[in-house]
C-alpha cells in the first residue's frame, strides 16, 4: 500500500531565504485575521494616544518656541511611532509563545537560512504597522491634523514608523530568544516605553529643560521622532531627515544582530 514516491529521498534542497521568509510572513499575517482580539489593542492604542495626548496637552503648542500650533500634528507622529514600536515588540511576544509551545523548535530544525526566521516575521510586522499607522492617520486627519510637508513628509512618517518597528522587533526577538518566557515580554515593554519617552516625545528639545534635555539630546529616538514629525511641522529638509535615517539604520542593525546572535545561541 506504499504510495507513489514523487521525489527522491533526501533530495530536499532547503528553503531559500526569500521563499522561506515569505512563508513565515504569511503565517504572521494570517494571525491578524484569525486572532483579531490580539490585533485590536495594537490598532486602538495609537488612535487613543493621538486623541488623548492632543486633547490633554492641547495648550502646550502655545509655549514659546513650540514648532506647531496644532497639538494633533505634534502627537500623531509620536502615537504612530509608539504604536509601531509595540507592533515590533508584538513579534517578541508571539515568539515567546512559539518557544513555549515548542513550535519554534520545528522552525529551527528546518534547513532554511536562519535569517529567514527573523526577516519573515518582520515582513508581517511591517504590514501590521502599515495598517496601524494608516488607521491612526485617518483619525488624526479627522481630529484636525494637517500635513505641512506634502506627500514626502507623510512618507517619512511611515519610514520612521517602520524603522521603530524594526528596532523594536530586533530587540523583542533578541530578548525572547534569550529568556524564552514571558519575563522577556515585560522587559521589552518597559525598555521600549522608557527609551521612547526619554526623547523629544512630549516636547521639542528647545522647550524642555534639565536632565531630560541632556538625555533626549543623545537619544537616537529623538532623531527618529524628528524624522516622523517633519512633514507635520513645516517643510521637509535634509537636515531634519538624515539623522533619523542614520539612527534607524544604526539601531536596527544593532538590535537585529542582537536577535541573530540570540537565535544562534538557542542551541548553546
Amino acid at each position: 500500500m506504499t504510495s507513489t514516491v514523487t521525489i527522491l529521498a533526501g533530495q530536499a534542497t532547503g528553503g531559500t531565504l526569500l521563499r522561506s521568509a515569505r512563508g513565515l510572513a504569511m503565517r504572521g499575517l494570517r494571525s491578524i485575521r484569525r486572532l483579531p482580539s490580539a490585533f485590536f489593542p495594537a490598532l486602538a492604542m495609537p488612535i487613543f494616544q493621538t486623541i488623548a495626548f492632543s486633547g490633554t496637552f492641547f495648550a502646550i503648542t502655545k509655549i514659546p518656541g513650540f514648532p506647531t500650533h496644532r497639538s494633533v500634528n505634534w502627537y500623531l507622529p509620536l502615537a504612530c511611532c509608539m504604536g509601531s514600536g509595540f507592533g515590533g515588540i508584538g513579534l517578541g511576544f508571539s515568539t515567546v509563545r512559539d518557544i513555549e509551545s515548542g513550535f519554534f523548535d520545528r522552525l529551527r530544525m528546518a534547513p532554511a537560512p536562519r535569517l529567514a526566521l527573523i526577516i519573515g516575521p518582520l515582513f508581517a510586522v511591517w504590514t501590521r504597522v502599515l495598517i496601524v499607522i494608516t488607521a491612526a492617520l485617518i483619525v488624526g486627519f479627522l481630529f484636525g491634523a494637517r500635513l505641512t510637508g506634502g506627500v514626502v513628509g507623510l512618507l517619512l512618517m511611515y519610514v520612521a514608523g517602520l524603522g521603530v518597528a524594526t528596532v523594536a522587533a530586533g530587540w523583542g526577538l533578541g530578548l525572547a530568544y534569550r529568556f524564552g518566557d514571558m519575563r522577556a515580554a515585560a522587559l521589552m515593554q518597559l525598555t521600549l516605553l522608557t527609551a521612547i519617552f526619554l526623547s523629544n516625545a512630549q516636547a521639542p528639545l528647545n522647550v524642555m529643560s534639565g536632565w531630560l534635555h541632556a538625555v533626549a539630546r543623545i537619544n537616537p529616538f529623538t532623531n527618529i521622532l524628528r524624522l516622523a514629525r517633519e512633514g507635520w511641522l513645516g517643510d521637509v529638509t535634509w537636515n531634519a531627515t538624515w539623522g533619523g535615517l542614520v539612527s534607524i539604520v544604526g539601531i536596527s542593525a544593532l538590535t537585529l544582530a542582537f536577535a541573530y546572535r540570540g537565535l544562534a545561541k538557542l542551541a548553546d
Partner: peptide, 11 residues
C-alpha cells in the same frame, strides 16, 4: 497551511 509552510522551509 502547515504542510505548505514546511514544504517551503525545506525547499
Amino acid at each position: 497551511e502547515l504542510l505548505h509552510l514546511q514544504a517551503v522551509l525545506y525547499g
